[in-house]
């Protein structure tokens, strides 16, 4: 098998599974799920972090030597709110990675592409490594790449729905055209969904609800760990390279080569 590092800009991550930190029954279960999943990156809602007191600080449950923090801007409804949150996180010492989430509708939490592009432009200029959460929109994905986004994170289906890759064909187009890692975010409800995204050539997947809201989060996080590895191996082994378009050579036109 080829050497297969997962890079975001220049930094290498040992796992292609990114976990969320919300919705868990307790911080202890969250911490154990993180360890068992072998993830090397977890996302934390900046609005949940209390930068003033140590009380209920979810960050204290994360071993930052092994796991990178990916602060997110969930709750922000426009570019400026997200920018303010990102700056707050950076000032509080949470690093310069940011998962940009701009979701003006608090019920379906669908991302606002226009505001996300605006915020990406601002934050990239300020030196942030920006990972924007987007609808599976292939054009927006390219625009974000041009604006300096470090990855794109298209949704499989709306956050928390566990419905899997409803946007499959658009994600396929995004992966086909991207020069940055494509991380499938949101809607992944089962390890099989994660494996499918990895088989398609996603660089990584991000999972929260499916693990945190399951009856046994720790077991479920191990299941996801294995599914992501399996999906990636399958992609590298060639399954993911199955083309959607017709093959170049075929018996019907072979005679043309012969007559040349």
């Amino acid at each position: 098998m080829p050497n297969d590092p997962f890079l975001i800009q220049d930094k290498e991550y040992s796992s292609r599974l990114i976990l969320g930190t919300g919705k868990y029954p307790s911080p202890q279960i969250m911490a154990e799920s993180i360890v068992v999943s072998a993830t090397s990156m977890v996302t934390v809602a900046l609005r949940r972090v209390d930068t003033n007191t140590a009380k209920e600080n979810i960050i204290q449950y994360i071993n930052r030597e092994k796991v990178s923090l990916l602060p997110n801007t969930s709750g922000a409804i426009d570019a400026m709110e997200a920018v303010r949150l990102a700056r707050l996180g950076k000032a509080a010492g949470l690093g310069n990675l940011v998962k940009l989430e701009i979701t003006p509708n608090p019920r379906n939490l669908l991302p606002d592409g226009v505001e996300t592009l605006k915020a990406t432009e601002i934050l990239v200029k300020e030196g942030f490594i920006v990972l924007p959460y987007i609808h599976a929109d292939p054009i927006l994905a390219k625009k974000l790449e041009e604006a300096g986004a470090a990855t794109v994170m298209p949704l499989g289906s709306p956050i928390g729905t566990n419905r899997g890759l409803e946007t499959r064909e658009s994600i396929r187009l995004i992966i086909e055209n991207a020069n940055v890692p494509v991380i499938v975010d949101a809607g992944i409800g089962a390890p099989s969904h994660a494996a499918e995204a990895m088989e398609m050539g996603a660089a990584a997947v991000m999972v929260n609800t499916a693990i945190a809201s399951s009856a046994y989060p720790i077991q479920m996080s191990e299941a996801f760990k294995l599914a992501v590895i399996a999906g990636r191996l399958a992609f590298l082994a060639g399954l993911g390279r199955k083309s959607q378009t017709a093959q170049a050579s075929s018996p019907l036109t072979g005679f043309l080569k012969a007559s040349k």
């Binding site: 900046l46 609005r47 949940r48 972090v49 209390d50 009380k55 209920e56 709750g75 922000a76 709110e81 303010r84 949150l85 707050l88």
Partner: peptide
Amino acid sequence: VWKDWEGIMH
């Protein structure tokens, strides 16, 4: 959960 909002956002 004690904190689920960031005043600075708004």
